[in-house]
């Protein structure tokens, strides 16, 4: 693996984790009685940026290295299901996640003052929960996929 690919892999993982942490903070913040709208806005923006950058770095690693060097190793190894089920699921959820993050970010930046409306606040909390849980699933799946590459 070249130094650039190592960097891309590390960036993909760490920026994704930053995104998950940021949206967890948004989720927690939206569950509080008193909402700190400034914190929520910046946290959502940090999370969205994290997911987008993780998307790009992960995409580079996937296209340039995973398909040709990692996938065949997993398929011939003791845990082929790691690719067949986890990678296949992960890559589709991963494509969708930044859009979910964008929805939350835009809602907070442009309609943040409407958070006094309980229904809107609860709905946004549910979307933030979905982004966090899907992100956590992707992170755990990533560990399982990497462990199968032997």
């Amino acid at each position: 693996m070249s130094d650039l690919l190592k960097f891309m892999l590390a960036a993909h993982v760490l920026l994704g984790i930053v995104g998950i942490i940021a949206f967890y903070a948004v989720w927690m913040g939206l569950l509080k009685r008193r909402v700190n709208i400034g914190f929520l806005k910046w946290s959502a923006l940090a999370g969205f940026s994290g997911f987008i950058l993780s998307w790009l770095s992960g995409g580079y690693y996937y296209v340039d290295y995973y398909g040709s060097s990692v996938k065949p190793v997993i398929l011939q190894g003791p845990y082929p299901l790691a690719h067949i089920i986890l990678t296949e699921t992960k890559e589709h959820v991963f494509l969708f996640l930044p859009f979910l993050a964008l929805v939350i970010t835009l809602a907070l930046w442009f309609y943040g003052e409407k958070l006094e409306n309980e229904k809107f606040k609860k709905t946004l909390a549910a979307v933030a929960a979905a982004a966090t849980l899907l992100g956590a699933f992707i992170a755990v799946a990533g560990v399982a996929i990497s462990g199968a590459a032997r």
């Binding site: 693996m1 892999l9 590390a10 993982v13 560990v143 990497s146 462990g147 032997r150």
Partner: peptide
């Protein structure tokens, strides 16, 4: 997760299981 990346890069993937 830094450790997990290190295991992957160092080729000791069995530690991830």
């Amino acid at each position: 997760f830094g450790f997990l990346i290190l295991y992957r890069i160092q080729g000791v993937e069995e530690r991830l299981y």
